[in-house]
Write a protein that binds this DNA or RNA. Sequence first.
DNA 1: ATTGATCATGTCATTATTGACATAATACTA
DNA 2: TAGTATTATGTCAATAATGACATGATCAAT
Lengths: 123, 123
Amino acid sequence: MKTAKQNKLKKAGWTIGSASDLLELSAEEDALITMKLSLASNVKKLRKAQNLTQQELAEKIESSQSRVAKMEVADKSVSMELFIRTLVSLGASRQQIGKVIGSQSTDNKKAALNKSDDLLVSS
Amino acid sequence: MKTAKQNKLKKAGWTIGSASDLLELSAEEDALITMKLSLASNVKKLRKAQNLTQQELAEKIESSQSRVAKMEVADKSVSMELFIRTLVSLGASRQQIGKVIGSQSTDNKKAALNKSDDLLVSS
DNA sequence: ATTGATCATGTCATTATTGACATAATACTA
DNA sequence: TAGTATTATGTCAATAATGACATGATCAAT
């Protein structure tokens, strides 16, 4: 329960903010970070499901490959705004995005979208 | 189906972006805006449910009364990030926030949170 | 009507987020 | 072994979002 999420976070540039000794998250920080991790893994999942390269997705959303990469590793420099705009561009509905935000990313592999639904193909 | 949402949007500073003659939203713009409208109305709803003034909420989230006001009218200058941080501060769970994002705001009165649940009291 | 409390709107300097670029690291294929 | 495609990381100038402040607008209650 310790280093699983935390390594990933330190790597992505997150400083586990305010509290005590080291690496203790407030419930609120945790909620935000959990959301971003889930958004990140779902961006990657949807991109791959549509056989897009990061470069191609970048063009679709009028951004750059490097920013897409940062998204997918949940770099702290990427905002909710960008995550969500990207998922929308990938064809995710509000409802699906809602689910992504409300669920865990299962930290590595298993994406949060499609726990019951399955992959959308979009426009 | 025309001026209901659109007046509110123009007032909040939204320029109905790219497309044709006037006031036509792309599906993607619409999704984003719908999310923000729903977030906005739920911030207001939760704040009131906890009998907080905008000023008090502002202190809680370390912001200002004016920014809270802008949130609640879905001003275009407020980001997803702030909406979500605010709801979290008001005690909303990821799941609840997910629901808010996935549902309509019913444009005026009826908030999206608690379609089945009901008001949370938080910390 | 006047006051007092609350909410709305405009502006601005500071900070955060952005796309772009370079370049490193990691696959994948031959 | 390369060689090529794809993804990761660092940096930075440009833009967007922020909190703060001033000032209006609304609404009660007396």
